[in-house]
Each structure stands twice: as structure tokens, then as C-alpha cells.
Amino acid sequence: MTAPARVRPFGERLAAAMDVHGPLCVGIDPHASLLDAWGLPDDAAGLREFAHRVMDAVAGRVAAVKPQAAFFERHGSAGVAVLEEVVAAGRETGTLVVVDAKRGDIGSTMGAYADAFLRDGSPLAGDALTVSPYLGFGSLDPAVDLALATGRGLFVLCLTSNPEGPDVQHARTAQGVTVAAQVAARAAALNTGAASLGSIGLVVGATVGTAVRDAGVDLAAVAGPLLAPGVGAQGAGAAELAAVFGDARRQVLASSSRGVLAAGPEVGALRTAALEASSQAAAALR
């Protein structure tokens, strides 16, 4: 019996998609206010119409999409079913799907999250998952192991733009390094030997200013993708991206949600906004 072909690692697939489509990830964040602005009801039917319009507009035209799980989960099981449809649509159109669920727990519970979002055959398993390391990086081992075994990836929270973030991320360990720098170093170790981009990436806000330097984080050494929320409507342009990411700019997957979604509800307008945002991100990250 012939063994199944091994799936290319997520980092390699993402690097290829960024080369073709540019370094943009379109967030699918169906806030209640956006549903209203699009003339859609704040229920599962409105959510489904919203999500499918976004996928119709951008699938096959951008490097990745990033559905925010919370906005689907707030509609209960019917909303989670729509999230499964987004994952399936990504698979059918060859568009990478980063499920933005920021899961983080310990032991068997983390194992169950990994099973839900990273196991072959799970309807919630996209191409990558966002996770939180703030119960200790080792708590993510079940997700790391399963992601690497199935050709999927992780984006580990490192430096975030919320004002409370530095209280944890800039705190120093007993060895004198910041928590954020330790997280980055652990990700770098997991990417050792990757052919192109590694599959264990970081989440680094595009609007964090001097935080990378202040926390002593070596982003280039991570050798994995850097998911950068905050591009566009949240204020990060070329100058901010250069200041935050420096020599690691070519690793950045810029994420834009409101900047693209505000152009809806028409599919054509959404597509135009996404392609413009992708072009701007590519120019900013050269």
C-alpha cells in the first residue's frame, strides 16, 4: 500500500502564497456593527452571508484569510458551522486559512484544542492556528507536535498592541530576558532546519512601536512568519512596518480586517480593497 504524500509544511506553503499574491492576510471579523453596516441581520444567516461574500471576493487572490473564531462562536453551534464552511472554502479555493482562536491551556485540554483545530479531518482545521503561550511555552507542545506532524502552522502571541500586554510580555524571567524574547527564541528553535519560512510563527502587532527593541526580541532569528495585525485602518503603514520589523520585514504577513471589510458589502468593492491593501503591504515590506 502506498503511503500518503506528505503535505508541504505550512511555512513553505505560506512563502509560496506570499510570492504569488503578496504579503496580505484578510481578517474575517463579522462584528455586529459590520453586519448592520452591510444590511445583514445579527444572526447565523447574516454571518453566513457576510463570510461567503468575503470569501467570494478574496479567495484565490490573497495569501491567506483569518476568520476570528469569537465572532462565529457568539452565534453558537450555527455560527461554528459557518466557520467550518469558511475553512472548507479555503481548502476548495487553495486559500490558506489561519483560524484566529488564540487557544492556550495545559495538558489534555490543550491536546483537545489541538485535535479540534489541527487534526486532519477536523472541520475546524485550517492551515494554521493562533495560540497563546502565557501558561508557559511548553503548554503548547500538543499543538506544536500536531501542527508539525500534519503540515500546519502556529502563530504564537508575542507582542500585542493592547495596553495591558507589556505587563506580561515585557516582564523579565529569572535569566533576565523578557517573556516576549523567550517566546521568540522558543519559536526560533522549532524552526531550525526549515527549508524556507518555518511553520511556527509569531503574532506581533504592527502598531507596537519600539516594543520589539525594548523587549530585546530578535524577529529575524525566528525564521518563521510574523502575523502583523493593525495594518491599514488601525494605523500601521510603511513607516510603522519598517520601524517595527526592520530586517525581518520579508517574514511579515500583514493582516487587515477593517481596512478591507469597510469597503463591503459589494463583492467587487471588497476585492478592490483587498488587492489595493495587498499592493500597499508589498510596497511597505520590500
Rank of each mutant, 00 (worst) to 15 (best):
3 A>C: 09
5 A>F: 06
6 R>M: 13
6 R>I: 08
8 R>V: 12
9 P>Q: 00
10 F>N: 05
13 R>S: 06
17 A>F: 00
17 A>R: 13
18 M>A: 11
18 M>R: 15
20 V>F: 02
21 H>L: 00
26 V>T: 13
27 G>E: 09
41 P>E: 08
43 D>G: 14
44 A>F: 13
44 A>P: 02
44 A>T: 09
45 A>V: 15
49 E>C: 11
50 F>G: 10
51 A>H: 04
51 A>M: 03
51 A>R: 12
54 V>N: 06
55 M>N: 10
58 V>R: 04
60 G>L: 02
65 V>N: 05
66 K>W: 05
71 F>A: 00
74 R>W: 06
75 H>V: 03
76 G>E: 04
77 S>E: 15
79 G>T: 10
80 V>C: 11
89 A>Y: 06
89 A>D: 14
92 E>F: 08
92 E>M: 12
93 T>N: 14
95 T>P: 11
96 L>R: 04
96 L>N: 03
99 V>F: 01
102 K>A: 01
104 G>S: 13
106 I>F: 00
106 I>N: 00
111 G>T: 09
112 A>Q: 12
112 A>F: 14
112 A>M: 12
114 A>Y: 07
121 G>C: 09
127 D>C: 04
131 V>S: 11
133 P>N: 09
138 G>T: 06
139 S>K: 01
143 A>L: 07
144 V>G: 07
144 V>Y: 11
148 L>M: 10
152 R>M: 00
155 F>L: 15
158 C>V: 01
160 T>F: 05
161 S>F: 12
164 E>P: 04
164 E>W: 05
169 Q>V: 06
171 A>M: 08
171 A>T: 13
171 A>L: 14
172 R>D: 10
173 T>D: 08
175 Q>I: 06
176 G>N: 07
180 A>C: 11
182 Q>Y: 08
188 A>Y: 11
191 N>Q: 09
195 A>W: 06
197 L>S: 01
200 I>S: 03
201 G>H: 03
202 L>Y: 06
206 A>I: 04
212 V>F: 09
213 R>P: 04
220 A>V: 15
223 A>P: 02
227 L>N: 08
231 V>G: 05
232 G>W: 02
234 Q>A: 15
234 Q>G: 05
236 A>Y: 01
243 A>H: 13
254 A>F: 09
261 L>P: 14
267 V>E: 14
275 L>F: 02
279 S>Q: 15
